[in-house]
Amino acid sequence: MEPSFLQWLADPGLSHFLILSAILFSLGIMAVLSKRNVIMVLMGVELILNSANINFIAFSRFTDLSLDGHMIGLFVIIVAAAEAAVALAIVLNAYKRFKTINLDDISMLKG
């Protein structure tokens, strides 16, 4: 058992990259759920998007997905850029109105 595990460790393949992305995903979930600062939540979302991207590109390298995975990763990056711009504009507006960016304090539907 032990030598085969060491051999598995010494040769990075598809599952290594998938496990790396799983760790990044769980760290992103942790940031989104436990932080009360809007910008920290946004950073957690970026982490989750990056882990999904690693998955796409690892599958594109190691399976028959070929370059379609790269394409999907490219579009994920584009949408993440648009999302970050709009989300930060919303955060600035909320800060202007509520004087805080703590998610628990921003609870009014009609400010």
């Binding site: 799983a22 760790i23 769980s26 759920l33 436990s34 703590n102």
Partner: peptide
């Protein structure tokens, strides 16, 4: 400073996600 809440449920959920995915 950032405020951290719900540490235990968030840890449970993220560790569960990590174990299941792995």
């Amino acid at each position: 400073k950032t405020v951290t809440v719900n540490v235990v449920p968030a840890s449970i959920l993220s560790v569960t996600a990590l174990v299941l995915l792995t």
